[in-house]
Design a protein around this nucleic acid. Structure first.
Lengths: 157, 157
DNA sequence: TCTGAAATTCATTCCTT
DNA sequence: AAGGAATGAATTTCAGA
């Protein structure tokens, strides 16, 4: 269950610390939140079991794996069930599409794409995006600047 | 330096595994990529030093921390330096804004916002978004469906 | 629920190949 | 670069408050 809401300030501090450094040792974490290691570990395990902590990930430099060029793509899809389902299924098979959202209003769909460079993007665009069926519009937006980065969710307190 | 490109297939496998589970023990990781623990650890440390691995994070369930309602907001800002800089500085002080991008073309700016519910969003919108100076348009888009989720970057191989 | 100690597992170093 | 053994840390469990 995700919301038994027995989450107190210490739990929130644990979440904040682990969002910042997911490889903190239990001991170091315990010290930062004012516990000793056994209760601290019990809380962490509980948060994991409850699904509050969904997992841990290494954060990789996109440049280093040939994905330093990011594009946001607005797409309009024909508003019929067949078209939408086929389109969304097709997205699953394009690894360069790292996020995709269906929106209310316009655009109907927003993709976040990560490729090596503009050449790779051109190839992706001509070979895979424009060939998707049921699409009525594709609009590619290059990011000029990251104004604010996602370093995890703000955790109250 | 990020690209000395002495990265081989084993390194890419390490990155893939650590993206999937950032708390893998070196031993378990070593087994998965076909090494013993000492060379495996050397590689991980090297990747960290080179900045290929930028860090480790716990992934938190947004619902559990009162941020289950996500909105994408397109904003147009007056195209003058003062306005843009003031606007972008102001965004830094709104914790609900978890990502912000300045784009080429239109919209000039895209925000990703995470709040508890639509009521909280209404409050944010009226109190903090519409009051930002230099803004000519605000367009809020609610996510109907997450078609594809970011579980880290695809790592070749 | 916490503490503190005991048992086990892991990280890390060093030396050899 | 990789493997293996040694050691020092950290995790994890458990008894008691």
């Amino acid at each position: 269950m995700v919301n038994n809401c027995a989450m107190d300030q210490i739990d929130r501090n644990i979440l904040r610390e682990l969002q910042n450094d997911g490889r903190l040792t239990i001991q170091e974490l315990a010290q930062r939140v004012g516990l000793t290691s056994s209760p601290c570990m019990r809380r962490v395990r509980q948060l994991e079991q409850d699904g509050v902590i969904q997992g841990y990930r290494a954060v990789i430099d996109p440049e280093a794996v040939g994905r330093g060029f990011e594009v946001l793509v607005s797409i309009e899809v024909k508003r019929d069930r067949e078209a939408v389902e086929a389109f969304e299924a097709a997205l699953q098979d394009i690894p360069d599409v790292i996020e995709a959202y269906r929106l209310f209003g316009s655009p109907g769909c927003l993709l976040r794409i990560a490729v090596a460079d503009i050449t790779a993007y051109e190839r992706l665009w001509i070979e895979r995006l424009t060939t998707l069926s049921g699409i009525t519009e594709v609009n590619s937006q290059i990011i000029m600047k990251r104004i604010k980065e996602s370093r995890g969710l703000p955790v109250g307190g």
